[in-house]
Simulated assay, not measured.
Amino acid sequence: MADDGDYKRDQNYITTRITADGRDGYPVEPGRYRLVIARACPWANRAAIVRRLLGLEDVLSMGIAGPVHDERSWTFDLDPGGKDPVLGIERLQEAFFKRDPEYPRGITVPAIVDIPTGQVVTNDFNQITIDMSGEWAKYHRPGAPALYPEHLRDEIDEVNAKVFADVNNGVYRCGFASTQEAYEAAYERLFARLDWLSDRLANQRYLVGDTITEADIRLFTTLARFDAVYHGHFKCNRQKLAEMPVLWAYVRDLFQTPGFGDTIHFPQIKEHYYVVHRTINPTGIVPVGPDESGWLTPHGREELGGKPFGDGTPPGPPLDAERVPSPA
């Protein structure tokens, strides 16, 4: 936290990359690595979506931590015996300490762990999904979409930078601000950017180009949590997402697209934020609402044209072990 009350995110991550040529010592190999996520976390949710869309389930397994953690790290309390069945660990912290016994920073998801050594390779959420699109291309499913096409990368990067600063991280800057001034500044930036996004999306179905790209995935995971968490818990309350017609239709369009809504688990999302953030919610009471049924209502975005997967195809159904309940 800065002296002015502004929330400053620690963006120092383990930046080792898993690449096709193995230049960092970790070559792409089917079955060698395990992606660790938590359904609650928007940054990890991105990796789960990209893995689904590209069809990497058979070559990159996925461990799912529970929604609640303590100061030590995320835990595998959803698994039998409280241990990840592949890594054999109770806490993600163990994989970080195998890499660096004195690892000094936060234990974050998503993280990719080298199964043979049990060491974390990277927790650089920004690069993980880009590398799934590029470095893992040999193992993409037939019909996988181009989520980071070369001819659109500059525009995708530009949009992503704005969305990260004002929306993805902006909701946290609202929620964790420790002065009124810092909160109001973050609030104004957040809603100014949401208005900008509404204008951008009023006449085009997706953020960049006419298909789903990395930019849509990064915005989606924040918008999906907006009414359930950020509106109340983080005081982002000018409007609910459901009261912003363009963005509400846009996010429902994505939610109903295979690979998006089937990665969202609203009860775990709410449990994480409302239980873990005791400085904001001292009682730990988790709200019952909002009603989830609206996520499956018609959105009308097809009229804007565009094709979700371009010339590709939708992913198949989730693996049985990775299914989440659909909204009522």
Rank of each mutant, 00 (worst) to 15 (best):
L54Q: 11
S61Y: 02
D79S: 13
V36L: 04
P101Y: 02
V59A: 11
P101E: 06
G31V: 00
G22K: 03
Q93C: 02
S73T: 06
R17S: 10
L53F: 09
P110I: 04
P110T: 09
S73I: 02
P85W: 11
M62A: 05
G82N: 11
Q93K: 14
E29D: 00
I37T: 14
V50I: 11
G31P: 04
R51A: 07
D77Y: 10
S73L: 02
V109N: 05
L87S: 02
D77K: 07
I64F: 07
A38P: 02
C41G: 07
L92Q: 13
V59E: 09
D77P: 05
E94K: 12
E90Q: 14
W74C: 08
L56W: 08
H69I: 09
D21S: 13
E90S: 14
L53G: 00
A40I: 07
V50A: 11
W43L: 06
D10T: 12
L35K: 02
N45S: 15
R99T: 04
P101D: 06
E29H: 05
L78D: 12
A38S: 15
I37W: 03
Y33V: 03
C41A: 01
R105G: 12
T75S: 13
A111V: 14
S61A: 15
R9Y: 14
R52V: 00
W43D: 03
D21Y: 01
Q93F: 11
R91Q: 13
P110F: 03
W43H: 04
Y103V: 04
V59K: 04
P80C: 04
G106S: 15
D100G: 01
A40K: 07
I89H: 04
D70I: 02
P80S: 09
D77N: 14
L92W: 09
E102R: 12
W74K: 04
P27M: 03
P80G: 03
W74G: 06
A47M: 08
V68E: 14
R39V: 01
G63P: 01
L54A: 01
L78R: 14
V86I: 15
Y33N: 06
W74E: 10
P80V: 10
K98A: 14
V109H: 08
V28I: 01
E94G: 01
R32T: 06
F96H: 07
F96D: 12
T108Y: 09
G31R: 07
A48P: 05
D100E: 07
R99E: 10
D100A: 02
G82K: 08
V28M: 08
L35W: 01
R17E: 14
A111I: 05
T15D: 13
E90M: 09
V86D: 06
G88M: 08
V109T: 12
R32F: 03
A47C: 12
I49P: 02
T16Q: 11
H69R: 15
R9E: 15
E57W: 06
A44Q: 09
R51N: 04
K83H: 13
Y33Q: 05
